[in-house]
C-alpha cells in the first residue's frame, strides 16, 4: 500500500506580486523538473502544490530560501484520456462515501492517459476504494518514470 502513495510538496505563498515566480526561480536554478503543479488561491494567500521527483532535495532548497513547505501524501490515478474518464474515478469515491479535498490532473501523451492527483482526507481509505473499484492507482515510481 505504501508504494501506492505519491508524495506532494506544498509551498505557502503570500498573495503578493512575484512570489510564485520567486519560488519557481529557486527551483529552476536548482534544476528541478516539476512533473505537475496546481495552485490553490484565496484572497489572502496561495498554496502551490507540486509533484517533483526528488522531494527531499526540493524541500531543503525551498526551506533554505525561507519558504514554508509541507510534504504530504496524495494519490495518483491513471485515467484514460477520453471523455468521462475522470467522472468514473469520482463515482468510485462517491460510492465509497469518500470526500475529495482537491484534485488536479495532467495529460501524458506518451501513454495516452491522464494522471489525476487526488487528495482525500484519509489517503489509505481512498487508495483502497479506488483499487477495489478497478481504478488504476499509480505508484510513485510509475509517475516519476512517465
Amino acid at each position: 500500500m505504501f508504494k501506492m502513495k505519491l508524495k506532494q510538496i506544498s509551498v505557502f505563498l503570500e498573495n503578493r506580486k512575484g512570489r510564485l515566480q520567486k519560488a519557481l526561480e529557486v527551483l529552476g536554478n536548482a534544476n528541478v523538473n516539476i512533473r505537475t503543479l496546481s495552485i490553490a488561491d484565496t484572497s489572502e494567500f496561495g498554496i502551490l502544490r507540486m509533484i517533483v521527483p526528488d522531494i527531499d532535495q526540493v524541500q531543503s532548497i525551498l526551506e533554505e530560501h525561507n519558504f514554508v513547505v509541507k510534504v504530504n501524501d496524495v494519490i495518483a490515478v491513471g485515467v484514460p484520456d477520453e471523455p468521462g474518464g475522470l467522472e468514473k474515478i469520482l463515482g468510485i469515491l462517491n460510492r465509497a462515501d469518500i470526500n475529495v479535498e482537491y484534485l488536479y490532473a495532467f495529460a501524458e501523451k506518451k501513454v495516452e492517459q491522464a494522471i489525476v492527483v487526488l487528495r482525500t482526507e484519509n489517503i489509505d481509505a481512498g487508495i483502497k476504494a479506488l483499487t477495489e473499484g478497478g481504478a488504476s492507482v499509480l505508484s510513485s515510481d510509475e509517475v516519476y518514470e512517465l
Binding site: 506532494q8 506544498s10 505557502f12 490553490a40 484565496t42 509541507k70 479535498e101 482537491y102
Partner: peptide, 18 residues
Amino acid sequence: EASPVLFSDEVKHVEGVK
C-alpha cells in the same frame, strides 16, 4: 509569519489556523 506547523496543503486548514 507562517511556519511549518501552521501550514498545510489544504486551504481550509490554513484558514482554520488564521
